[in-house]
Design a protein around this nucleic acid. Sequence first.
RNA 1: CGGCGCGUCGCCCAGUGGGAGGGCACACCCAUGAUAAGGGUGAGACGCGGGUUCGAUUCCCGCCGCGCCGACCA
Length: 945
Amino acid sequence: MKTKEKNSSSAAPEGDWRDTLNLPQTDFPMRADLPTREPEIARTWEAHDVYRKTVDRPGAPVFVLHDGPPYSNGDIHLGHALNKTLKDIIVKYRAMQGFSAPYVPGWDNHGLPIEVNVMKEFRAKKETPDKVTLRKRCREYAAEYVARQRDQFKRLGIRGDWDDPYLTMSTVFEAEIVKVFGELAQKGFIYRGLKPVYWCPTDETALADAEIEYVEGKKDPSIYVRFPLKDDPHGVFPADAPKETCWTIIWTTTPWTIPSNLAVAVSPVFDYVVAKTASGDHYLVADALLKPTMEAAGIAESDYEVVKVVQGHTLHDLVFRHPLHGLGEPFDRDSVLVFADYVTTDDGTGVVHTAPGHGKEDFQTGQKYGLPVLQPVLSNGVYDETAGEFAGLHINEGGKKVIERLREAGNLLSEQQVVHSYPHCWRCHNPVIFRATVQWFMNIDHDGFRGKALDAIKTVEWYPGESINRISAMVAGRPDWCVSRQRAWGVGIPVFYYNGEPIITPESVAKVYEMTLREGSDAWYEKTPREILGDDWVCPLGGSVDEYTKETDVLDVWFDSGSTCRAVLEHRPELHYPADVYLEGSDQHRGWFNSSLMIGTATRGEAPYRQVITNGWTLDDKGKAMHKSAGNAIPPANVVQMYGADVLRLWVGSTNYFEDVRLGQKILDQTANAYRGIRNPIRFLLGGLYDFDPAKDRVAPADLTELDRYALDRLQRLIGEVTRGYETYEFHRAIRAINDYCAGDLSAFYLNVIKDRLYASGANSRERRSTQTALYDICSSLVRMLAPILSFTAEEAWQMLPGATALYPSVELAPFPAPDTALLDEELAARWRDLLTLRDEVNKALEEAKANGLKKPMETRVTLAGDFPAAEGFSDEDLALVFVVSQVERKAAADGSGPQVQVGAAIGRKCERCWLIKRDVGADTLFPKLCERCADVLRARNAAG
RNA sequence: CGGCGCGUCGCCCAGUGGGAGGGCACACCCAUGAUAAGGGUGAGACGCGGGUUCGAUUCCCGCCGCGCCGACCA
């Protein structure tokens, strides 16, 4: 039935009895050759439609692992491979536990990187596409990468609904996004507000962070400006100091933002000083920066003295006046003192000029203190009419005039030049500015939502446990979600405007939804408001639909992916909301875990997941993050090509992925080696089962030899441990247990000591069938326990295990083994544990004997002199078997000495068949060179024909 | 710079307020009927500095290194 791999046709030497032995036979090759074999194995899964069968299980409990969508750009990297393989392990394990375990992979398609790459294509052709053309090409581009990544994931052995994945750019998905946005608006979460973004005044467009390039060597003015004191309720300045002599000083390189100043920020933890100058002025600055500040202001060290030192936090409630207050409106206003932790003592004065309309940090501080967002700059960089006398000037000119006016007001303490790096537009290479613009936001604090989200977090199980700290801090501290982007490749924000007034009603959203469901989000850009809303549209503002305009911004792609819990979980009959598990990299605390929680909880009232697992980052062998640019990245495709997917999967399975994981050449080689350490025992097991038919040859538990019962006891314990590893998502514990088992229980012990029995006993003898029964259960269980991780290898072995495929065509469809408590025997286990300890002692004695010339342990006799409780109850023959020696005898200890293990030459002759030294060799006249046992076997064999 | 983590033999992982373990790799030996296999023996580690404690790898603090996220560059 099985072909012998070995070539036994070569001329057998004299006395070669191998053909009379039951030597292992199997087609399961020692060399895996995974790179070529794995694709073939994958085809058997397709042939048996394994994915469908693990999903379509009527009545079975459902386990939903919801896939976080990778971005459809580029080839998959090791991080993807790690993450997807972990998901695959979980899904396959659950399926083997009897769950209906669907896995619907998805992709995140919209967004800047694709838009940027596509724009590059057009630019290379010197074309400037309109939005619709651009979007069409983005769509194609995304589809190409979906196909490409899909094949790469499949090659890793990831099982899932690859024929019907979810795509955020699909019509169904885009429509659901529109719907979700509409729901949030309806519930009152959505508002319009100002936010500073990078803005190119030359191209008159918003820029994403990725579109910014920092250019060294920009020359800018560097000015120190003093702000006069207005209120000092707690007496920070000396009581005898007249108010008109009290000031604070700021430093800036962007004088054009001074007209927008609303506050000065200080650090609560620094020390601040009031310095009195010879001219009678009192200046408040950070202690650490007093000297450079005074130097810059041209005040000699001899001309000022520190009259007071205070801690930053005591400065609260101070109010200053705008340094241009002398110009009257609109600058006759206050500049209040605020605290900010980004204040440093590296540069400046320790007092930071704050203009909420012109800086990210300034904006946040402004939000915190309820300051307005002053934004007097038009899209072309020209001051608008609210900028007082600067109105109509470009900020470049305006900045100079600001300096001039400050000087005239006497508040310019210093003006110098500074050369520094500054953000520039990547298209026109001109300097960019921060400019407050109108954006759409999700109000995180609407109706106590932040608290609800934090409560929802507590209902979720986080793996590892510490991970909850991160998500909680994230949600507790996050600002409102700016969901609008001034881009083309995304889902259009479904808002119409009439006379500048936004219109978003359940009816309008429904119209956009229906349109998107039919035609996709491109239609938002192709159709007129009348075409979208219909001729019978009634404007809530009483206007005409023909005068409507459409919002041009698209939604943040995090809004897309945050909507998967709606667009996927609720749209697929095989899934459900909430999902049982999300599993992503630790960066997704800020990303997908967060956006999903926001959208899921806001629209459905509970978190979209029950368990969240995080995997760490992939680092190189030196512990550095892998980056393509750093040259230390290991493409999964290379690993698959050189070692095979199962080696990569084994690496995934053996790593503690809750923390950062490392991979390098050495680790790969080691993993490949560990792979062999599992594969070879399986090969041996299969080889020992070549003539075993479990239906006919199985020995009843009660008839098993003690050794085999012990082996099965060990197996049950292994199953328990491995199961625990899978259940807690600590796969490395499962793999470690299996490794230990293969190396320790199997190779070093069981498979080693049963050889005589397996090879030399009668093929159908009770003890051989007993051992084979154990081998069969071990092999079957081991292969099934490995199937979620070493999917290819487990399948390969399953196909060769006698009788296995008749029950389950694929190992992935077989049930995960459960410990058989009837096979657990505590007393037996303890007895053998002691015997194995004695075996260690014997081995040490054998090692000494080797050094003394008794080279072959198998041809020795071990004498147990004295009292050896561990050996009690075992026959000498059993002990010889376990020690893998020819003979064991017991005798009393020499007078006065303790128990001692002695090793000597075995007595008798070597049996040419079983290679053991026996006293009875030659007793059988027919087989003078064999021991009696072997002679009996051969007689029976000959009798049988 | 801040938040959250991590640092145990060459590598992957365990572990504990009181003997620091396993597997892989390594060295030596045996074997050559699991054979580009197998067996045995052996050497080898708690990042650094404080503190708490009778006692710390384990608890606390600081430092260093690494990672993720965020901020900064006014």
